[in-house]
Amino acid sequence: MPTKDVITSADLAELRRTALGTANPLGVAADLADAVEQGRLADPDDAGDALALAAEIAEVRARLDAALRYADRAVAAYPTSDDARAGFARALRARIMFRVGGREDEATAELTALRPLLTEQPEAPAYVSAALDAGGLSALADEWLSEAVDTLLGQRATSAATPEQTVPAAEPTVEVGPPEAPGVLFFLLQQRHRVRRNLNLPHDRQDDLADRLEAQLVRRAEQRQGGEPDLLFWPRAEFDRLLSEQAALTDTYGPDWDAHRARLEKQLVQLANAGRTGLSVLSGSVDGLTGYAGRRNGDPTDPQTRAGYAGELSARPGAKISWPPERNDACWCGSGLKYKKCCLPRSRS
């Protein structure tokens, strides 16, 4: 399935968002690999990114042998192993090796070599822990993320201490930066929090810190954007009930269910365009939201309450609805229509 004679960086970003929804995703992957081989990339430095995308597509479509070939080529395509983008490709290759089977030791060694990036690159906690999870090593991911958090917190505490004070008297103040660019520590804490929830581990002080930083980021984002940062989705009956009981949320979720779905679809597209992967919406219920608000003495219309409810939902099996579906598959909103006839066009309206 040919894409274009010359593929630009913008084309790659668009393919990352849309390739799985095309009629022949594996054809897109093959053409990306051919474009690298034939010199059809507008920027030759995009070769690693194009091959990594081809590997991701093949992995999702369960063509693991092809995915591993693409991933091997992606790693080799980066000028040096120090290239910031090379870390993702190496973790992707390790993840695929786990899934192919028989190369678990090699995959673990690859990820061990990437471990120092956890305290250096904001994206590393997500891609390293995802690869470990594919190998059934989520407990090891928790260990690595916890140690990385301790390292960064220790560095901050030491730099803030006086010469006589080597141990801080209280938990250090943590700055996460502006909403557009949260720091490495923020992403470490959030990824550790997700891993621990999936492992059903008890909440600890670092989880408390992750919650506080996320709430801080939510407040900052709302002040800047005046918008709703969560991805709570209300099925048709729940949406109607929600607005009948909480009319103040009309501005947040839209005046009707069509507007609600359109807002979510557009937000998901924006996140995908920004490079986010593994996107999903969280299917909420009015009883769930009001119950959460009651337990926390909160107001269902308060953004922080809804963000907390979204965090609680994200740990529940079955609450996440993956996005995007393929064009001819049932739409994520539950309408019963095909995605291409339902919510896909809403992102362009």
Rank of each mutant, 00 (worst) to 15 (best):
P2K: 09
T8Q: 05
T8A: 07
R16K: 13
A23H: 08
L32V: 06
V36D: 07
E37Y: 13
Q38R: 14
D46Y: 10
G48T: 06
D49L: 10
I57F: 14
A58Q: 10
E59G: 13
R61P: 00
A62Y: 05
D65C: 02
Y70C: 07
A71S: 13
R73V: 00
Y78A: 03
G87T: 05
A94D: 08
A94P: 09
A94N: 09
G101E: 11
L114Y: 11
P122M: 05
A134Q: 05
S138E: 15
S138I: 00
D142M: 08
W144D: 07
A148D: 07
L152P: 01
Q155F: 04
T158L: 15
Q165H: 11
E171L: 07
P172F: 09
V176Y: 07
P178Q: 06
E180R: 11
G183S: 15
R197W: 04
L199H: 10
L201N: 04
D208W: 04
D208F: 09
R212S: 05
A215C: 03
V218C: 02
V218H: 02
V218P: 03
A221G: 10
A221N: 09
E222C: 13
E222A: 12
G227M: 09
P235F: 10
R236C: 01
E238L: 05
F239D: 03
L243P: 08
A247S: 13
A248E: 15
A248G: 01
D251H: 07
Y253E: 01
Y253N: 03
P255R: 13
R263Q: 14
K266D: 07
L268G: 05
Q270A: 15
A272N: 10
A272W: 03
G278N: 09
G284H: 01
S285P: 08
V286I: 05
G288M: 10
P300W: 08
T301F: 00
P303E: 03
P303Y: 03
R306C: 06
L313A: 08
K320Q: 15
I321N: 01
N328L: 04
N328F: 06
A330C: 02
L337F: 13
K338V: 06
Y339C: 01
K340P: 13
